[in-house]
Write a protein that binds this DNA or RNA. Structure first.
Length: 251
DNA sequence: ATGGCTACGATCCGTAGA
């Protein structure tokens, strides 16, 4: 089973790229973030034509998440109470799949930063309940946290900034402490592996990025995980998302 | 190198992303 996550930064703009990528990568499940579409405007027909069922929770302009699956989807939930469309969960072939778009946080100390930390605390509590019910659990998404300095192209320049600040990293570690593994770090990886590159300043060409899109696996799924990779190819396309897809393969 | 980009919903600029 191939699980993937991709922050598409507007599903309306990126739909052709998404369909092309799915046809080539053939993931079983794809978690999407920043669809930026109200549910009425979700391209369900095109997704179905590609062979995928969809569960989605969107809003206009901001946020928006979806789970696409080649297999049946059940027990769809949008998680804990929240005013923004940042979480959707579904059960696929006995695996609980949770798709998250964690808040950006804007700047350390800002109101949005405090919201981000509160959101992580709620997520942790909610995931604890999910883990109690589902031993096969995967959390995929844009966490907006680079867990360690090796996930940052220039740790010195980023020191103390949003996405790498100690409280954000502690919040991310808090999720792992529930009994989840960062799938990417289960394997030897190339140095300077990132999942996001700023649109400005030719950041992708300089590989000036952050690894902020992650796949967390419960112990049972981690045991079955045979690979976790970041696919940089879609970032090379014309008019790309600023994020690359991340893929985990389960035996 | 934090800007200089991109998407959106609103106009010919503001908000937000990360």
């Amino acid at each position: 089973m191939k699980l993937a996550t991709w922050n598409v930064n507007s599903l309306k703009v990126r739909l052709p790229q998404l369909l092309g990528w799915m046809a080539q990568a053939r993931p079983d499940v794809v978690c999407l973030q920043e669809t930026k579409l109200e549910d009425a405007k979700f391209p369900a027909r095109e997704i179905e034509a590609a062979g995928y069922q969809a569960a989605f929770a969107g809003q206009k302009t901001y946020n928006g998440v979806a789970i696409l699956s080649r297999h049946g989807v059940s027990e769809v939930s949008t998680g804990f109470p929240q005013e923004q469309a940042r979480l959707i969960a579904a059960t696929v072939s006995g695996t609980r799949v949770v798709c998250v778009y964690c808040p950006n946080g804007q700047a350390v100390g800002s109101e949005k930063y405090e919201y981000k930390l509160r959101w992580f605390a709620e997520l942790r509590e909610w995931l604890q309940g999910e883990l109690a019910r589902h031993s096969r659990l995967a959390v995929l998404g844009d966490f907006n946290v680079a867990p360690e300095d090796r996930d940052v192209h220039d740790p010195k320049a980023w020191e103390g900034q949003v996405h790498v600040s100690p409280p954000e990293r502690a919040a991310f570690q808090g999720l792992l402490k529930l009994g989840l593994e960062d799938a990417f770090r289960l394997f030897a990886q190339p140095e300077n592996s990132y999942s996001w590159w700023d649109y400005r300043t030719m950041a992708f060409r300089r590989n000036a990025g952050l690894r902020i899109d992650e796949i967390l696996l419960s112990a049972e799924l981690a045991k079955r995980c045979t690979a976790c990779t970041i696919d940089r190819e879609p970032r090379r396309l014309e008019r790309p998302s600023d994020h690359a897809p991340v893929i985990a393969e389960l035996a």
